[in-house]
Simulated assay, not measured.
Amino acid sequence: MCGLTHLIVFVSIFAAITLISEAQYILPIFKHEPSKQYYTLIYIGSATTSSPVNLLLDLGTNLTWLNCRNIKSLSSLRLVTCESYTCKFITGTTGCDGKICLYREPSPFLLTNHTVTKTDRVVQDKATIFTTENGVPPSIVSFRPFTFSCAVQSNLQGIASPISGVIGLCSGEHPFWRQVSSAFNVIPKFALCLPSSRVGKFYMGATSSFNTPLFGGNNPVPMTLTPLTLVSGKYLISVTSIYVDGIHLPVNPSLLEGGAKLSTVVPYTVLQTDIYDALAQSFTFNAARKGMSETTGHAPFKHCFEEGASGKNIDVSMMEIGLPGNGKEVKWRFQGANIVERVSETVICLAFVDGGNKPNEFMVIGTHQLQDYLIEFDFSTRRLAFSDPLSLHNTSCST
């Protein structure tokens, strides 16, 4: 019932939006505040027995997987056989248990040197989402087959209790957005607007080319383009430089060579130690100038400050990362609530995590930094588009 209520509210909000583009396929995004996990809601099953299922957003997962015991009726599920093209396309020649197709992939919460894998049966059913086009209020639409795998409850370790599985959003061959694009023959792209509270938006098909009251009426929020690199299912952007309050951060250029990974399961951006220390030093200097005193004991954060006479001022510093644009460097700006986390009435912390000297990626951009931006992944152009901070336009992803 709760899931249905969420969807009704989401549809009523979207009914006020006027589009100037082709069809969009839409899902809500919810934030589970205690865990900082973001999830969406889809319906699985036939019209008479469809079930609402909450799924964790994961840019690193290919095939969607979930605890199928949360589906009210399993009668419409169809097992994918080893001999089928679908099985061979997903798993190659190794994903079989007798005649049943199996799928194995890592947990979204990998620990260093501790790889957990999921081995589950691949199945198909019908999925139900929303669509809208040319100003028409959102309506419900379904597609079949929706291919996913059934996980056991123990595989949900680390995932918040309202969530029943993981929706695959990586750049592989069978993520959810690609199945939607194929089913409805729309442009292969999707966009996320992660909310800081309430309900955000997950678009597939047409995304950034719309004109809504939410994003500025007749003046849509500008979008900046940068190349999108796809490596083993990861989404990477090339960072050319880092700035704090317009001043170039002294970072060894070799640390920037691997690109920064985008993540929807890492709550706070993780930085290689040298990069983190340079950012923290600049942040600490600016905090001290504003009369803040440093305090400790607020894990996972290393640098926290009592606001003191400065009051509730979260605009301590502005961070920008330089990215390749159309023949010139473009900048992605993070400031205010995207830079700090308030941990008490009087204490704010630098909302970044020290990832050590030799992490797998020098920078993993987490959800705290991504929330309240519109971010589009366009596979027709291999580009990432990101908006201005929506706070600069007196709006947000939260509706």
Rank of each mutant, 00 (worst) to 15 (best):
Y243Q: 05
T395D: 02
R104W: 05
P28C: 04
S241D: 11
A191C: 06
K261G: 05
R198G: 03
K31E: 12
G297L: 10
D378Y: 01
C349Y: 06
D58T: 06
T269P: 00
V136P: 00
L384I: 01
I187V: 10
Q37P: 07
M319N: 12
S149V: 03
G158D: 14
F89L: 07
A337F: 10
Y276F: 09
P195G: 05
F109A: 08
G60V: 04
L214M: 01
S164D: 06
M292P: 04
F10W: 13
T367K: 06
V353P: 00
N326F: 06
C397N: 05
I159A: 15
E345F: 12
F89Y: 11
T94C: 12
P324V: 08
V136R: 07
L256Y: 11
H174M: 10
N219P: 01
S232D: 10
H174D: 04
F202N: 07
F176K: 15
T128A: 05
K201T: 04
V53Y: 12
L41E: 13
N70C: 01
T147C: 04
T269E: 08
S380M: 11
E173P: 13
M1W: 05
S154H: 08
F210I: 03
G325P: 15
F148C: 09
I339D: 03
V347G: 15
V199P: 08
V152D: 09
P137D: 10
N252A: 10
V221G: 01
P108I: 13
I20T: 11
T264A: 08
V122I: 14
T128H: 14
F215P: 00
S107E: 08
P28D: 08
R382I: 04
I314G: 01
N357T: 03
